[in-house]
């Protein structure tokens, strides 16, 4: 799973690159400067997609976050405020940058708040490597099930190979039975987890019948 910030130098226009460099210097000199710089990133640097994980604005915002010369509790406070006052694009950037600024799970409250919401773009951003590493088992399973409900492809959820277990398989099998009983479609991407972990006698028959 990608966690580093992609090389921005090659994708940014010279003017945007200069703006970002100056922004980083200003944040190093005065961390409170990030409050005004963070929301301006999209207009200054652009928003195109770089790869499967990052857009330009998210990567540039991650650069600003990693420039913060702060330690706890100031870091948690500053990043928490950027998320609290951020629009969805800013919040996605904060969520994607979490593994770059913290390896102890201090920002799980942001992940949890996002998972309570309904915006699938935010939910997807919250379920990256950070959540995969730090979310407790029961919350991780609920998050995966929520993705299935919201039809977020499970290929976009980090850590599923390592964290899928028998309990998750049971939950997904129950979900599949509910859908089948209602005459509704069952997303195909849940079958590998069910097959790998649910006992053969606890699989929805219709799933085994499928390819």
């Amino acid at each position: 799973m990608i966690s580093g910030i992609p090389e921005l130098r090659t994708v940014l226009e010279p003017e945007a690159r200069a703006w970002l460099d100056t922004a980083v210097d200003r944040i190093i000199a005065d961390p409170t400067a990030i409050g005004a710089l963070f929301p301006a990133v999209r207009r200054r640097c652009g928003r195109a997609r770089i790869d499967g994980h990052w857009t330009i604005d998210e990567a540039a915002r991650a650069v600003l976050l990693t420039a913060l010369p702060l330690h706890d509790p100031a870091l948690t406070e500053t990043v928490g405020a950027l998320h609290r006052h951020g629009d969805p694009a800013e919040q996605r950037a904060v969520l994607r940058a979490l593994p770059l600024i913290d390896d102890e799970g201090r920002f799980l409250f942001l992940v949890r708040e996002t998972l309570r919401g309904n915006d699938t773009t935010l939910i997807e951003a919250a379920l990256g490597p950070y959540a995969a590493r730090h979310l407790p088992d029961d919350e991780y399973r609920q998050a995966v099930l929520k993705c299935v409900f919201y039809e977020i492809p499970l290929s976009r959820v980090a850590g599923l190979d390592e964290r899928a277990d028998a309990e998750l398989a049971r939950m997904l099998a129950d979900f599949a039975r509910e859908r089948i009983a209602a005459g509704r479609a069952v997303p195909e991407d849940i079958t590998p987890v069910i097959r790998a972990f649910a006992p053969a006698d606890d699989r929805p028959a219709a799933l085994d019948g499928a390819s």
Partner: peptide
């Protein structure tokens, strides 16, 4: 290709 809600998906999911 900016992340945005998938229209077909959300009819059943959201």
């Amino acid at each position: 290709d900016e992340p945005k809600p998938d229209e077909s998906a959300t009819y059943q999911g959201n």
